[in-house]
């Protein structure tokens, strides 16, 4: 990376993700799902449901939650916590939007690799 004054990685434009949808970012440790809510909030979570490994990026996004496409577990995009009667957590990553670009925290991703 050039500059090096921070660790935020530009992964694409906000418009590249459909409203109330998601796209994935490939990493060496598996995919991270980057969600865009109907209100243009952006969240990044592991693209893997703790239940049976379903791709959360393919779930229906409602409010600030996503429903896993395989067995309908619901996760908060803010905390990664399973909602309702289900118990489980998905790792979340710092992500922000600046000038229409989505920035993902590379340090946290790196830490995930080390862990």
């Amino acid at each position: 990376m050039s500059g090096g004054f921070d660790s935020w990685i530009d992964i694409g434009a906000l418009e590249d993700i459909p409203s109330a949808g998601a796209r994935v970012v490939k990493t060496a440790q598996g995919c991270v799902a980057v969600f865009r809510t109907a209100n243009d909030q952006v969240f990044a979570l592991d693209d893997r449901c703790p239940h049976k490994g379903g791709p959360l990026s393919e779930g229906i996004v409602h409010g600030t939650a996503v429903t896993c496409p395989l067995h309908a577990w619901v996760f908060s995009l803010e905390t990664g916590q399973a909602q309702g009667a289900d118990a489980g957590t998905v790792a979340t990553y710092p992500v922000r939007v600046a000038d229409g670009r989505i920035l993902l925290d590379g340090r946290r991703l790196a830490r995930r690799v080390a862990a």
Binding site: I9, G12, V25, K26, L104
Partner: peptide
């Protein structure tokens, strides 16, 4: 393009 990953950080994250 919409069917592929938004970004590929495989190399960056492995640094």
């Amino acid at each position: 393009g919409k069917w592929a990953a938004l970004a590929d950080l495989t190399l960056e994250a492995a640094e």
